[in-house]
């Protein structure tokens, strides 16, 4: 009983903090926080594959980028499109792409999977770079209208206002993260983890491993698309290097590794730490990737479980009540 109370209290405090954030921290930090939240959702969606299913994707930017481009393009070309529809179209774009490529991917695992995702990611990048009539190429696509959020019985809410956009973005991103959390608790979530641990045995148990992988891939891609769509609305600008480049795929991997692959909250913590590190380093140097790379190497080498892995170890050693002595 007390546990539920603690959880409810923690949730209320968290929501309260999120609501108070823009009032207390100012517009600049609010925007940094939105950036963090976008990356957190992106990393959590990646971790659905990396941590839960044991599949390392080097092409996750493909979905992020498709979400961003679909949202941007639909806002540019369709007049009076509601913001929610633009968002849904972004997710739909990513999901359609995941559905198309998943049959080719799901029979692979390990290095071959990583390589094929890398190939697809690069293919998408090159296509968007070269067909600049549609995508704007390397210059990107900017200045598309960001419509007001229409809620029945009230007037539209101006989404170009950073604070209003913050509430909208946090609601969508937080909602998506909660949905992913629910997804990991479904029976499919358990099957995912068993595929990571021993896919042969899952096969013998009668599950069709490729279709489960395919489902995970599509869900993961869809949520990455949602993150990309919010990114497009937030930046009001999408460019190939910004949303489809190789480093867009690497960043959530780095965040997940830093935070911890084996836990749900790991990628969120990793995204937070990396955002703080980046903001801190930007005052002194432009060479952020150097530090990211070093942190990545050190983490893989000395703490493959990430921050959450370290925490688990400490917790087990010092705080857990020992039942057998």
């Amino acid at each position: 009983m007390t546990k539920i109370w603690i959880k409810t209290l923690a949730a209320i405090i968290l929501i309260g903090l999120l609501i108070a954030f823009p009032k207390v921290m100012g517009v600049l930090n609010t925007n940094i926080f939105i950036g963090f939240a976008i990356m957190a959702l992106f990393a959590v969606s990646l971790n659905l594959m990396l941590g839960y299913t044991g599949l390392l994707s080097f092409g996750h930017a493909m979905f992020f980028g498709l979400g961003a481009y679909t949202t941007a393009l639909s806002l540019k070309h369709i007049d009076n499109l509601p913001i929610s529809m633009a968002l849904l179209l972004g997710v739909l774009g990513a999901v359609v792409c995941a559905v198309i490529v998943s049959p080719l991917l799901v029979r692979l695992s390990g290095t071959a999977f990583s390589m094929l995702t890398l190939a697809f990611g690069q293919l998408m990048y090159i296509v968007c770079l070269k067909f600049r009539e549609v995508t704007g190429g390397a210059d990107g696509l900017g200045g598309f209208p960001v419509p007001d959020l229409k809620i029945p019985f009230t007037g539209g809410i101006d989404m170009t206002d950073p604070v209003n956009f913050y509430y909208f973005a946090i609601t969508v991103l937080g909602g998506c993260i909660l949905l992913i959390w629910r997804f990991t608790k479904t029976p499919i979530g358990s099957v995912m983890i068993s595929i990571r641990d021993n896919d042969n045995r899952v096969d013998y148990l009668g599950f069709h491993v490729p279709s489960v992988k395919s489902l995970v891939f599509i869900v993961s891609g869809g949520f990455a698309g949602a993150a990309g769509a919010i990114y497009a609305l937030f930046q009001n600008m999408v460019s190939t290097d910004g949303v489809l480049g190789l480093f867009t795929s690497f960043n959530p991997i780095i965040m997940t590794i830093i935070g911890g692959v084996s836990s749900f909250t790991g990628p969120i913590i990793g995204a937070g730490l990396l955002t703080i590190l980046e903001e801190f380093l930007l005052r002194y140097t432009d060479r952020i990737a150097l530090f990211n790379g070093l942190v990545l190497i050190l983490m893989i080498k000395f703490a493959p479980g990430g921050i959450m892995g370290i925490w688990d170890g400490v917790y087990r050693k010092w705080f857990k009540r020992r039942t057998l002595s």
Partner: peptide
């Protein structure tokens, strides 16, 4: 292999920046 792959990504980033 996943750890090795990610490690080589780290090495790549460090060399590129270095």
């Amino acid at each position: 292999h996943i750890g090795e792959l990610i490690l080589t990504v780290g090495v790549m980033m460090v060399i590129m920046e270095a």
